[in-house]
Amino acid sequence: MSTIANRRWVLAAYPKGIPDASAWRLEEVPVPRPGPRQILVRARYLSVDPYMRGRMAEGANYAASVRIGETMHGGGVGEVVASEHPDWRPGDIAESMAFGWQEYAVLSPDRTGPGGTHRIDPGLAPIESALSWLGMPGMTAYFGLLETARVRAGDTVLVSAASGAVGQIVGQLAKIAGARAVAVAGSQRKLAWCREIGCDATIDYKASGDLLAAVREACPNGVDVFFDNTGGPIQDAAMKSLAIGARVVICGRIAQAARFGEPEMGERLLGSLIVSRASVHGFLVFDWYHRREEALARLAAWGREGRLRFREDVLDGIERMPDAFLRLLDGSNFGKQLVRIAPPA
């Protein structure tokens, strides 16, 4: 293996605002060898996710930042090509959030928690599903909506970035729970998909003009659950439209990407919480990984029943990793953004 090149993207500089391609550098290094109780995995799919912008900063976050010259953090799924672990064999399929932006990764199956390694059954769903609806995005929707927001039948659920990796599952889980789902996205094409998977009403935040009026028209009795994947003006409009006893889940803030690390701009709306008696919850899916198997079992069952559908946006080749990530930041992606690294063996 040492004669085969492993291409990897490392962080070249901490960006200010929206990154460009100069933030990363593509390197070739020898393929690493697994140590005792480790496995070597060749990537088939790598994931890019909004949380990665927070890892590209010097300041403290909920997880350690990527160091300059270090392989960019990220999840992946691939095929075991060498194993020094008694429970793993070449040909097994492994998924891990510890993969990184590289073609080959050494993983430690004994590690637990969010950076752990999980065996994937290719017969259950396409293996890339482990990075989308049967993985971290699906779990985010599951625990964020069903546990943190405590969605109930009859609720009106407003979800931003509703055609994205998490948002499209939130909308469908809301319908499964007997709630009314209202989707916010940035194009009619994306909103058509949201309607196709069952959302009751849609809002084009780029074309609506008066976003507050659009939210209030779509949610005439107020917003019972706001699942916030973006922050920014959508959040402002939602916070002014909360029903009594509303629950707000703050999951992402991609609208802040151009001002990362700076104070968020907008109105101060905490007084509205007194009127609505609403609760606001910061949400991090990693806090729920101890219940990973429960969530994936239920998501898989709903998938088999045809109650969950999912759209993915796939680019090809390790060279496309920065392009794929930047698509998330400007909203060019349509569905869960993935990069296909290698074809099936």
Rank of each mutant, 00 (worst) to 15 (best):
R150H: 10
G252L: 10
N229S: 06
Y62H: 12
R150I: 03
A300N: 12
L26C: 12
A246C: 03
R37D: 15
R304M: 11
M321P: 06
Y45K: 09
A181P: 03
L284M: 15
W302D: 08
I341M: 12
R307L: 15
G115A: 13
M1K: 02
Y51R: 06
L46S: 01
S279C: 07
P50I: 14
S96M: 03
G266P: 11
A243Y: 14
P114T: 09
P30N: 02
G100S: 07
D316V: 13
A238P: 06
Q102N: 03
A192S: 08
Y289C: 00
P109W: 06
F334P: 06
G116D: 09
L40G: 11
D204C: 07
V66W: 06
E27Q: 12
H73P: 04
A201E: 15
S108G: 06
F227K: 01
V159N: 07
V285S: 02
A301C: 07
P90Q: 08
I127H: 01
V225L: 01
R119S: 10
L145Y: 02
R320E: 15
A192M: 06
Q235A: 13
P126S: 09
M239V: 11
W88R: 05
L134Y: 04
A130S: 15
W101Q: 10
V77A: 05
V248N: 04
A237K: 00
Y14M: 07
V249S: 00
E27R: 04
S2F: 02
G266H: 07
R298M: 08
I120K: 01
T117F: 05
I234Y: 00
L134E: 02
H118G: 03
R152T: 02
E293F: 03
G69C: 02
D92V: 05
V182M: 06
A237D: 01
A300I: 08
R89Q: 15
F260H: 10
R67E: 15
P90N: 09
S187P: 07
E267L: 14
D236V: 13
R340L: 13
D92T: 04
L40K: 11
D204R: 08
Q337M: 15
L315G: 10
G171H: 07
S132G: 15
T156Q: 08
V166H: 05
P86A: 03
